[in-house]
Amino acid sequence: MSAALAADAVSKRYGEREALRDVSFSAGAGETIAVIGPNGAGKTTLLSILGGVQRPTSGTVSRDPREVGWVPQQAAVYGKLTVEENLRLFARLEKVRDPDEAVARMLDQTGLRDRAGDELGTLSGGNRQRVNIAVGLLAQPDVLLLDEPSSSLDPRQRERLWEFVGGLARAGTTVVFTTHNVQEAERYADRVLVLADGELLFAGSPDDLHAEVGGDQRDFEAAFVRFLHERGH
């Protein structure tokens, strides 16, 4: 599998504090990777660097940020604009060749065509998040970065979100997402990256993580907690 996205020895410092320390990994086309870890582990910082929002203090990322779709945790769209206006604005800013076609495509993909004329401020959190993700997909990127995409969604909306993300991965899009819900990581990710205190502790499949801690844990979350504990976190 060729690398659609690779990070090489990426580090990030904020003054004296080291948020990321020599993180390296690669992701293949169509692969889904979950980045998990305790609070303050550096998950959002890693995604911000991969998405070009922040620059690493050292290290490199293989992709130009403009080739990567980035979806922040909180919906980065305008509440006073309609769904369609938000999509059209970002399509134009992304310099998409045919903004109208891109808008129509995303309205269909997100199932929001009937809400196209509604202002974002009037939509539910789930629908806002769908628009937020749609904006990240307007330019049809090969790589999609999702920062805790399901955190504000109810179970039914989460199910629809992961169905949507799964469809993208099956179509060849590389998806890297962060989550606090490790069960989601086990269920929807091909591989997990475990970060703690800015350090990459593990990169492998959920089953590999189970095996790493002896495989006698009752579920993936217990295995994850045990893993962190064994590493001193």
Binding site: P72, A76, L93, V135
Partner: peptide, 12 residues
């Protein structure tokens, strides 16, 4: 609106 980061990552 949390749009700043999205805008300045190459769009503007």
């Amino acid at each position: 609106e949390h749009a700043f980061a999205r805008l300045v990552r190459g769009l503007v």
